[in-house]
Simulated assay, not measured.
Amino acid sequence: MKHILLTNDDGFDAVGLKALIEALKPIAKITVVAPAKNKSACGHSLTLERPLRMVCVEDDFYKIDDGSPTDCIFISVSNLFKDGFKPDLVISGINIGANMGEDITYSGTASAAMEAVIHGIPAIAISQVCNDMCQDVKTDWDFALAKEVIVELASRILSNNFPLDERKFLNVNIPPIKAIESKGIKVTKAGFREYGNDTHRHLNPRGEEYYWIGLHPLIWKPSVNKDCDFEAIKANYVSITPIMLDMTSYNDIKAIESWLTK
């Protein structure tokens, strides 16, 4: 039987992870290694300044105390999977909230997929876009559309049909609608996210200043061909974006070489 390693950045007890397990158990052996607490927006961080404990919650299910999603993949690949054996697929999610545009660089969900492909393992990051600060998803969302999509994608990959070259992964975003309302799947590019500065300044009881970063609304710069992830979600399509880890701006290499000779 094929073997899928699951993680997330919302914590080992998150509803999205539970939905992911339910969806994938019928098609593969499942191992879960997830952070012990919410690590949203931690990016591709690896913990180096302290030891980490991997705690067994139940069979094939572990949490890592104060570990990042990247830690979860890094530690599990080298310790739970030995003698050259690797999982057939890594899936990170189902994240509560969007991971589109430049948010991908902040995302712990996407970063776990990044770490997987660094180790030569096919990977998917999947996120459930939501409204009203995600309260609807945290309480009574059924994740039916996300489950349907991830089973289809995972089944294709487990049939030795991963469509990407090395160090590339699939970033999937699910619109905040019921499955019956979906218009299908669109392959998209990452959009141009526009950010505000939702930072709140406060004083603690001792008069010391502190700051709390808030949530930014999903605002983006329209793309010429209406083919970015934000626009697909707005139109009630599932967005699938192929992401590469090589961030080199190849078109600018000659320009920089010329600039250095002036």
Rank of each mutant, 00 (worst) to 15 (best):
S159C: 08
R206N: 13
S182D: 00
S107Y: 03
V187C: 03
K186G: 00
G120Y: 07
K147Y: 05
D103T: 10
M133P: 00
I185Q: 02
A125Q: 01
L203W: 05
I118M: 15
D140Q: 12
I94G: 03
K186L: 09
G108T: 06
I94Y: 01
E181W: 06
F169L: 04
S127A: 14
T199I: 15
T199S: 11
A116N: 07
G191S: 04
R167A: 11
R201K: 15
L145A: 00
D136W: 14
Q135D: 14
V137A: 14
H200G: 01
I94K: 07
N197I: 08
E181N: 12
I118F: 10
I124V: 13
I104M: 08
F143P: 03
K147F: 06
Q128I: 08
I157M: 05
A154L: 10
S107E: 05
W141V: 04
V129H: 06
N99Y: 01
L145G: 00
G120I: 10
E115H: 04
N171S: 13
E102T: 14
S111D: 00
P176A: 06
R156V: 13
A98W: 08
G196L: 02
A144C: 10
I104H: 03
F169A: 03
Y210V: 09
D103W: 13
A98S: 14
G191R: 02
V187D: 05
N204E: 01
L153M: 11
A123P: 05
T199L: 15
E166W: 12
F162M: 06
T109E: 07
G207K: 03
A125Y: 00
I174K: 06
S107I: 03
A98F: 12
G108V: 04
Y195Q: 13
W141K: 06
K168I: 03
E102G: 12
I180V: 14
I91L: 01
N160W: 04
A113H: 05
K189A: 11
M114T: 11
S111Y: 04
R193F: 01
R201E: 10
H119W: 14
L89M: 04
D142F: 04
N173T: 08
K186T: 00
E148A: 10
V151I: 08
L203T: 03
D165V: 10
G196R: 02
N173K: 02
C130V: 09
R201H: 12
N161K: 14
A144D: 13
A110M: 07
N197G: 13
N99S: 14
N171C: 11
K183V: 00
G101S: 09
I124R: 06
A123D: 09
I150T: 07
I118Q: 14
R206G: 07
R156K: 15
A144S: 15
I121Q: 03
V117W: 10
N95M: 08
V172C: 06
A144G: 08
A113N: 03
T188K: 09
N197K: 11
Y210S: 07
I150W: 01
L145W: 01
S111H: 06
R156T: 13
E194P: 00
P163G: 08
G97Q: 05
V151W: 09
I121M: 09
K183Y: 09
L89W: 04
D132C: 07
I104T: 06
S92F: 02
